[in-house]
Amino acid sequence: MNARLALLGAMLALVAAGGRAATESPAAGTAQGVYSAAQADAGAQVYAGRCAVCHGADLSGTWEIPALRGRFVGNWGRTPLAKLYDYLGHAMPQFAPGTLEPPDNVAVIAFLLRENGAPAGGRPLPADRAALERIVLDPVTPH
């Protein structure tokens, strides 16, 4: 009985590990510097023009509108950036969904990463879904 339970446990653990391995296949995390500083600057412009009215100049949101810092990392953390890219492409800015062009989309993601404490790197974040599928949003340490 105990042995069988142990076996079952071991099998479950294997399945779990396998599952994790599959989701951890992305090659990079945002802690490694996946966007360029210039791109984040461009993203800041997009943000100011198309997002700040709702999410606030300092990204802190309101009672009704989600903040794009802090909790934002909680909501999108350990998820491939492709998911965020898709969401922004479909849904934001909310008053004109579907109008965020791919270069603006990745630029604004770069800006959001910077504002959430992810470091800049040498190369810009590509507007390429397959590549974004391999980069996950890493946790950050606040101060």
């Binding site: 802090g70 909790r71 934002f72 340490t141 606040p142």
Partner: peptide, 12 residues
């Protein structure tokens, strides 16, 4: 609380 929890959330 929102600010403090936001900070906590960013560490997942």
């Amino acid at each position: 609380a929102e600010i403090a929890v936001g900070k906590a959330m960013s560490t997942l």
